[in-house]
Every structure is written in structure tokens, then in C-alpha cells.
Deep mutational scan, measured.
Amino acid sequence: SSQSQGISSSSTSTMPNSSQSSHSSSGTLSSLETVSTQELYSIPEDQEPEDQEPEEPTPAPWARLWALQDGFANLECVNDNYWFGRDKSCEYCFDEPLLKRTDKYRTYSKKHFRIFREVGPKNSYIAYIEDHSGNGTFVNTELVGKGKRRPLNNNSEIALSLSRNKVFVFFDLTVDDQSVYPKALRDEYIMSKTLGSGACGEVKLAFERKTCKKVAIKIISKRKFAIGSAREADPALNVETEIEILKKLNHPCIIKIKNFFDAEDYYIVLELMEGGELFDKVVGNKRLKEATCKLYFYQMLLAVQYLHENGIIHRDLKPENVLLSSQEEDCLIKITDFGHSKILGETSLMRTLCGTPTYLAPEVLVSVGTAGYNRAVDCWSLGVILFICLSGYPPFSEHRTQVSLKDQITSGKYNFIPEVWAEVSEKALDLVKKLLVVDPKARFTTEEALRHPWLQDEDMKRKFQDLLSEENESTALPQVLAQPSTSRKRPREGEAEGAETTKRPAVCAAVL
């Protein structure tokens, strides 16, 4: 046999249950609850290399294929790409003598399909299967379609040439079993990697079954959420508030809700932002270029202005709740996480202390139980975000031990490091100062900020419009641009040419 590394010779191994799959997660993409704000000051410096380099560890398999027929071997997927077919160049070659004697062998292509993985959001991997055969590759009886790919989820059954000719079961060793999710959700989405997690739940990458488009699904544990919100009269209202707010909003710089499922837990389906959180971008770069800050901040102002015009105060604006559309420097941003939002009543007064301390406005800290506050709290938070983006460190921090965090904020005395700000323009610093004003009545509004000289930049605004146009074009394009080929190089076993392929839609398939 010419099988590559990772293939075992026996096809009769006992199949494990899916609970053996491991679970991976990374930083929070968007969480309903406010958790302790991640610290920006503690960015690790590059460490000196050791005298002796450690040995390379043996790579762990990321997936496993269990053979369902004699003549096929099990495969431990270690590499990122595997070709399957009769050709000797394939990493998994159909060359077992037992297999060659079967009637089905002649229906398999020289290069029938490939399984591979690509880097997705949060640097996690996504597994795909890609059909290159004349007679078809099927996943859970659905045709992939020649020249098309679809994501592979845990426990997928792979069939060759005929939908009933099941050859492998695919085990993704990095994700959960699909069966743990409600059927209504599974009918519409293929669940994938964990993108982030918080005290009350997690955010998962998923794929729409009909279109193969990526989405983010925010899962909120009702049990954990009820415990964490025990002081509230009705904890469920917080989730329902977020859903109702998101459904009503329609702005290019605000995250869109696509679906909602109320089962044992809450499942909020949101558009996916491939670039992750602004927080991670700031930490990764230490600070952002001023031109990049301007492009992002302009969009934040437009989003918050839209919220305020619609009578909504976000109340928890922070870099973790600003998501980026891509890994590119120039990209769209979207505001997310409306769990603490407040729809303005007639009095415009709110007395609930919520939000993240580092970003809270002075009037929030001094008015607990005594007075109210209004939309100006969001403008203060925007000032803190702009400060961080321009400088790479927070204006107020618990680690300045000589003054408490509350006193720093209520006095408006931010930590100004001259040598850092020497590289920032006077106009940018002036806008920061106009937003970090203790008196909410004297603080800049979103309208005033948008009129500030720093943002009178036609090149930046043109760039934003171009990015918007690109997004609109990409969302308007159909996901499947061509029909699967019906040509046949070899006959199917026991049926006429093209008899099955043309009847089945290529579900969740995307043209390369």
C-alpha cells in the first residue's frame, strides 16, 4: 500500500463515540455579560531565545476518518491537505487489492476528492471536503458537486459515486458533537469551532446549510445566566432586550441578528466578523496607526449616533465590543453586545450600574441610586476607546495605585505619557480631550465629534464608502454560481449515467 503517514491498516477498528472529540476555545468574540476587562498594560515583551531549542513535538491529529468498508483504511489527519483517489500521487490511494476487485472500484476517479483545513476566524481551523469526481462525492447523502466544497462537521458520513455507498465517517477532533444542539438549529446550521467564551456562554462559528455562508452563533446558558443575574427581577429580559434591539436596528456599522432560537439555552445567530475584536488588534499591534484609528472611530461614531437617534444607549462600549470585518488594516467595524443597552424612556434617566469599570463615565460612578444619566455615557466610553487606539494603553487603570480607579475617572485625570502622545496629531488629542470631559453637559456629542476637524478627511470617508460598496456587492452575490457537472467518465454501479447527480441539489457548496 502507498498510504501516507497516519493511515492504519485495519478497517475493522472499533469506532469511538463522539464524546472523545476535544474542545477548543479562544478569547471572547462577544459576550452578553460584562466580565473583568482584559488588561492592556500587560503586553508581554519578546522573550530571549533559549540556548537549546526544544524538540519539535509530534503533531496531534486534528481529524480521524473511520473506514466503513473492507479495502479502505482508517486515517489520522495530521497534515493540512489529503487527496483521495486511484492515482498513485494521492496521499490516500485507493490501491488495496481487496478494493480493486470490487465492482465499485471502476466508478472512483483518479482524484476523487480531497479533505483539507484552512485558517478561519480567531486563527481556528475549518475542515472542508472538495469534490473532484465525475460520479460524485456525497456528505450525509447530499451531493457536494464537482469543483465545489463544503465544510465537514463531526460525524459526517462520506459516500463515493452513490449516496448509499458510504466509505468513511469523519471525526473532527477539535469540535463538539452536533447532537448536543437543538434540532431546529441543526436543521438550518452546521455548528463548528468555538470563537470565544464568557461567564454565561460562548460564541460558535457555524455555516448556513442552504448557502454555506459563515455566521456566529452566540449561545447563552439559561442556567448560568439565571445564577449570574439572580438580582434582576427577570434575567430573561436581558436576552430578550438584546434580541428586540438587534432586530430593529439596520446600520452597516451595527451587528445584524439573523436568527434566534429559544431552547434549553438561547441561541442568537449573528453575522460573522472575520477580523475578531478591536481589543485583540490593539494588543497585537501595541497601538494602531492614526489613519486606521480615524477610519475605525468614524464608523463607531456613525453607529452610536444611529443608536442615540433611535433612543438607544449602549452602556457597555469597549474594544471587546467592536468587531472587525476582516484581518486587513482597512476594514469595516461593527458594534455588538447589546445586553446592557437601554431604550430611552421619557425621563432619559437610568440608575442601574452596569458596564465595565474602566470605560464607565464619571456620572455613572457618582450617581448610583441618587440620580440618572443619559446618552453622554456612550460618548465618554468612545473617548476611552479612542485614547486606547491612539496610545496603546488605557487612560484609567486600577494599577495606578496612588489613585483609585473611581477617583481617576470622576476627576477626569487620565494617565498622559508625553513621549507616547508625541507621535499623535494635535487634532486627534483634542478630540480625545473633548470626549473625556467629566461634566456630561459639556462633553462632545456624537454629532459634535463628527464635525471635529480631525474627522474632516475626505480620503478616509471615501475609503469607508468603498468598503461599504464591497460589502454590499459580496452579500448580494449568490453563493453557488454554477451547477454541478453531469458529465460521466465512468458508469455508476447499477444505474444510468447522471441518474442521481442531477436530482440532488449541491447543498452548502461554494464554487472555488
Rank of each mutant, 00 (worst) to 15 (best):
I243A: 04
K247Q: 05
K248Y: 05
N250A: 04
C253P: 04
I254V: 15
K256G: 08
K256I: 12
I257L: 10
K258I: 12
N259V: 05
F260L: 08
A263L: 07
A263M: 08
L270A: 08
E271W: 10
M273C: 07
G275T: 07
G275R: 05
L278Y: 02
F279A: 03
F279I: 07
D280K: 05
V283P: 01
G284L: 06
G284P: 03
G284F: 13
A291I: 05
A291F: 07
A291W: 12
C293L: 08
K294D: 08
L295G: 05
L295A: 10
Y296I: 07
Y296A: 06
F297G: 06
M300V: 13
M300H: 02
A303E: 00
L307K: 00
H308K: 01
I312V: 10
R315L: 01
K318P: 00
N321V: 00
N321I: 04
N321A: 04
N321T: 03
V322Q: 00
E329I: 12
D330P: 11
I333P: 07
T336M: 14
T336L: 02
F338S: 01
F338T: 00
S341Q: 01
G345E: 03
E346N: 10
E346Q: 12
G355S: 01
P357R: 15
P357N: 10
P362Q: 00
E363A: 00
L365C: 12
L365N: 04
T370N: 10
A371S: 11
N374Y: 08
R375Q: 04
R375P: 07
A376G: 07
V377K: 01
C379R: 06
C379Q: 02
W380R: 01
W380C: 02
C389R: 03
C389F: 14
R400K: 10
V403T: 12
S404F: 09
S404K: 14
D407G: 06
Q408H: 11
F416K: 00
F416P: 06
V420S: 12
W421Q: 03
L429F: 14
K433N: 08
K441W: 11
A442S: 11
E447P: 11
E448P: 04
A449V: 04
W454P: 03
K463E: 03
Q465M: 15
L467K: 07
L467N: 13
S469V: 14
E473N: 09
A476Y: 15
P478A: 03
P478M: 05
V480I: 13
L481F: 04
Q483K: 10
R488S: 14
E495C: 07
A496C: 10
T502A: 11
T502Q: 05
R504G: 03
R504I: 09
P505R: 04
P505F: 15
V507Q: 15
C508M: 10
V511G: 14
L512P: 12
